[in-house]
Design a protein around this nucleic acid. Structure first.
Length: 423
RNA sequence: GGAGAAAUGGCAGAGUGGUCGAAUGCGGCAGUCUUGAAAACUGUUGAGGGUCACACCUCCGGGGGUUCGAAUCCCUCUUUCUCCGCCA
């Protein structure tokens, strides 16, 4: 959520920046400014009414105390008007405020200066590429075939037990998955991130805090009996740890990592390109979250992308980094770098990590603040990134490391797996 | 799941209808003293709205109600604690 005072002060800058998202924000922003003025006018009027009414009540109290009951009763009659007026003004205020709030919720984050304009993922800007794409031998298979051939992932069984998009990992497949999780967590804690084990369901307030609600309500599984949501990413429980906090300025940097399964309904995304592990309802992910001083957040973003690069280097997977264009940028992000691994047998790039700076957008909803040098409360910056999303890493590994004799395990993972070949 | 108790400022803890945004203690910050530090003493110290700045308004777990007036009374929800039951 954008900050009201910024909209008031920098309306034109915001409108211009949002053009990169192909949004004409002028009407909404004008409506917001009007509503805000209206809200403040009502607030002032209400405050004045309450002030008068408070004063009167105090006088009544004093009169009663000094035994002048008759005069007090006379004054009581005067309060009726104030009561009526403040009730009405209060209702107007609530209505105006929630109208204002709704409009504010509709506006996505303002893209960073470096974000290119563009309509879709085709306009994303490739800024880095590393690793050799292997030449596969004759008869190379996509990962879903390999999964079947070596009996390491059973998609049909998942359908039987739950439904499509809930695969069951078996034997060396399950072990490889566990190895990857342990390896990622080790890399992250070595880099100073504190490991967390998190709830997999969150309440409504947390959903709003990180911005999944209200705009992505349909993408989350909702447990209706208890009004809880299955997390679509560990970002939600992690970032919400500091909801409503005012941190001392020496708290930074705050660096967390956590492994969780992630649950996504993915409503309406069936069709091509969702085969195998490419798109699931439940998948594992190791996440990084940072909470930073505004002056430091872009440095932190760089550190996070370097960190993810290192992991991919160690896994020896060919990857590229994209700077997302305005049209593809997530609702809450100011700047996002996507990491994609080349999936050789499918001959396509698969997104395996997304590293973003949200600046104050989430912090404003979360009321996540810190005390600055002058002792004033200021919104912190939040960032997050995957390190990494498991299924697509697995897909990349299976496809890129396949040989006639089986699937080789990358060297760094062998100690975690306890084997060096799936065959 | 059943029965009871509780929820107040960074923490501890008073306050049971009337200048209470809230005593007191601890902690934090600033100052005095000191070569420096500690101790002692003095002052200061919640958040949000609003204003050029004041004034003023809101907030004592959340929501609703009673009253001229609510931290205080009533209803409701949530959470915590104790006891019982069940259980990984």
């Amino acid at each position: 959520m954008l900050q009201l005072h910024k909209i008031r002060e920098d309306k034109d800058t915001i409108i211009n920046a949002l053009k990169k998202r192909n949004i004409d924000a002028e009407p909404v922003l004008s409506a917001i400014i009007d509503l805000d003025e209206k809200r403040r006018a009502i607030q002032t009027e209400l405050d004045n009414t309450l002030a008068k009414s408070n004063k009167l009540s105090k006088e009544i109290g004093m009169l009663f105390k000094s035994g002048k009951a008759k005069e007090a009763t006379a004054l009581k009659e005067q309060t009726a008007d104030f009561k009526e007026a403040s009730k009405q003004l209060g209702e107007e205020l609530t209505a105006t405020s929630s109208e204002l709030q709704e409009l504010l919720y509709q506006i996505p984050n303002v893209p960073h200066d470096s974000v290119p304009a563009g309509n879709s993922d085709e306009d994303n800007e490739e800024i880095f590429r590393e690793g050799d794409i292997p030449k596969l031998e004759e008869g190379a298979l996509p990962h879903w075939e390999l999964a079947k051939k070596y009996d390491i992932i059973d998609f049909e069984l998942g359908v039987k037990v739950t439904g499509a998009g809930f695969p069951i990992y078996k034997g060396k497949g399950a072990r490889l998955q566990r190895a990857l999780i342990a390896y990622f967590l080790d890399k992250n804690t070595e880099a100073g991130y504190t490991e967390l084990q998190l709830p997999l369901v969150v309440n409504e307030a947390s959903g709003y805090g990180t911005g999944q609600l209200p705009d992505k309500e349909g993408q989350m599984y909702h447990v209706q009996n208890d009004d809880l949501y299955l997390i679509p990413t560990a970002e939600v429980p992690i970032t919400n740890i500091h909801r409503d906090d005012i941190l001392p300025k020496e708290s930074f940097p705050i660096k967390y990592t956590g492994y969780t399964p992630c649950f996504r309904r993915e409503a309406g995304s069936y069709g091509a390109h969702v085969r195998g592990l490419n798109r699931l309802h439940q998948f594992d992910k190791v996440e990084l979250v940072r909470i930073e001083h505004p002056d430091n957040s872009y440095k932190a973003l760089d550190e996070m992308t370097e960190h993810v690069k290192n992991i991919l280097r160690e896994l020896r997977l060919p990857y590229r980094i994209l700077r997302l264009c305005g049209g593809d940028l997530g609702f809450t992000a100011a700047l996002t770098f996507d990491f994609e691994v080349f999936s050789t047998a499918q001959d396509r790039w698969l997104e395996i990590s997304s590293v973003s700076n949200f600046e104050t957008f989430q912090a404003n909803r979360l009321k996540l603040r810190f005390k600055d040098e002058n002792g004033k409360s200021q919104l912190a910056h939040t960032l997050n990134g995957s390190s990494l999303a498991l299924p697509r890493v697995l897909a990349g590994l299976l496809e890129n490391y396949q040989t006639k004799d089986g699937i080789k395990i990358p060297e760094v993972l062998v100690p975690y797996c306890g084997f060096d070949m799936i065959n």
